[in-house]
Amino acid sequence: MKPAPFEYYAPTSVEEALATLQTLGYDGKVLAGGQSLIPAMNFRMARPAALVDLNKVNELFYIKPTSDGGLAIGTMTRDSVVEKDPLVAERFPIVPYVVKHIAHPQIRNRGTFGGAIAHADPAAQIPALSVALNARFLVRKQGGERWVNAEDFFMGPFMTVLEPEEMLAEVVLPPMAKGSGASYQQVSRQKGGYAQAAVISVVVVDENKRCKDARVVLFSVGETPILSQTAPKILVGNVPTAEAIAEVAEKISKEEVDPGTDIHGTAEYRRHLVKVLVRRGLTEAFERAK
């Protein structure tokens, strides 16, 4: 289990990294934390011709508050840094809680926030989290940049809108609205293992406890993170009842997810989990909403 040979580039600035990616085109692959890519390379399931290692690009490691009460996270910020950052915990308490569920401490010490997004593993937490929090991504290439909403970023399993010469540079989390509450529910065979089904729920209520917004994002049960269309339809404008939540859970599990049968669970079981987890998640999120 030794990786195949590759060319190695270790730029020290974003400019240099973008120039390298531009030159390499389809041959180039960004190396961020490497906690998914390097195992795949060891199995020789991934054999990039060239790696552009961002670990020496110091300007990509940061967590900055934005003036509107949100956060800007540099793409190379390690998961463990996000997990332990007091500002993150203060502004987005759901974030460290979700991040804690990523694999094990040693992986989080190396894995990066942006890397997980760009990798777009349908079973990964951070892509779903970014959709649930309505994140925006700064995508850069040599001589240009664009902003992409998280919702529009993921195209399929391990596929995103990123072009070969592009790089995800920054993740911006808009502030949590007043009256919001969030919950994370996951079932996996083991702690740190891939979720068999998982849901991140972010809801907003007004002062009369009426639901203003409900972002319910499922993952590990389809090809990309799935933002439920049903949840806001049924919930927004009403005070959420147990019946309404159950209805959302039922509908999502029947209509919006597409889990497959794999060695650890049948599609039927995983669909059932979606129903249970959505119900538990929304109930918890509304309880927390304030």
């Binding site: 079932v187 065979r189 068999q196 650890h264 669970g265 049948t266 039927e268 079981y269 995983r270 059932h272």
Partner: peptide, 11 residues
């Protein structure tokens, strides 16, 4: 007995 198997048995 994975949880999924238990679920199937119970069903």
């Amino acid at each position: 007995l994975s949880p999924s198997r238990i679920f199937t048995y119970v069903q």
